[in-house]
């Protein structure tokens, strides 16, 4: 679905990505783990078009039958249209918009008004908080509620590929469980997910495959289970002695 080859990105003078290559196949959850500053967020921002790669290719096909397109030179809004939705780090709900407006703005590129309303109603059933607090400004929700809102806001564009940046950040453990349950359910429903996480243990547990990023390079890759058993990964990211 997504194939990244030898991508270099410079970000304000620093060489943030130094030739990374990775693939995400349809229906997978792929985890990208690594320390702070390793380039995880930069990778997602490059895929979603917020940053331009200096070199390398990013090709994406929304389904198996579709011809792959080069998204490396596309504008962010064209990439959303192509079916990639990015939940940025730190949740980033629109504080000046109500909860429902936050959801509606997620459907900005859709024009099927009735279906949008149905999708919003559907999300409100899955996450009742989005209904009970529909008219409250986005930033009045708690951290966990905001996370539900941004996942809903990303889903309402009906993406094929979901990019999630640190969904567990700053959330209580049972909320993190809840978020990961949602990701499992999305995978069962056929969603493809690229997940960036600090919480490597949980990310590797849920991921089909995973990549380890260090100083702008991919240093390890494998199935989630393999990496969770890898001694280096255990030492560096899983807190083993």
């Amino acid at each position: 679905m997504l194939r990244i080859e030898d991508v270099h990105v410079r970000r304000g003078g620093t060489h943030a990505l130094r030739g990374i290559s990775m693939t995400v196949n349809a229906g997978e959850i792929v985890a990208l783990i690594g320390a702070n500053g390793a380039g995880k967020t930069t990778t997602l921002a490059t895929i979603s078009g917020l940053l331009r790669p200096e070199s390398g290719t990013l090709s994406y096909a929304r389904c198996a039958e579709a011809a792959p397109i080069d998204i490396g030179r596309m504008r962010a809004e064209q990439i959303v249209q192509a079916g990639i939705s990015h939940c940025p780090e730190g949740r980033q709900v629109f504080a000046a918009l109500s909860v429902t407006e936050n959801l509606r703005i997620g459907a900005y590129l859709r024009h099927d008004r009735a279906a949008i309303d149905a999708d919003i109603a559907d999300l409100q059933t899955q996450f009742p908080i989005l209904r009970t607090r529909a008219n409250v400004p986005g930033d009045r929700l708690s951290g966990g509620e905001q996370m539900m809102l941004v996942i809903g806001r990303a889903l309402i564009s009906r993406p094929k590929l979901l990019l999630l940046d640190e969904p567990s950040l700053g959330l209580a453990p049972q909320l993190v469980e809840q978020i990961f349950d949602i990701l499992e359910r999305l995978r069962r429903e056929g969603m493809t997910i690229l997940l960036v996480e600090q919480n490597a243990a949980m990310a590797l547990d849920i991921a089909d495959r995973a990549y380890v990023l260090e100083a702008g390079k991919i240093v390890l890759e494998g199935t989630g289970k393999d990496l969770a058993g890898n001694a280096d990964v255990q030492r560096a990211y899983l807190g083993a002695a």
Binding site: G49, L50, L97, I105
Partner: peptide
Amino acid sequence: TKVGIAMRATAENYDVARLMGIN
């Protein structure tokens, strides 16, 4: 209106607005 909401979203955060597909 959708465009009005998009304008408020843009005023708040360019990058996140772009991630919604807003030009």
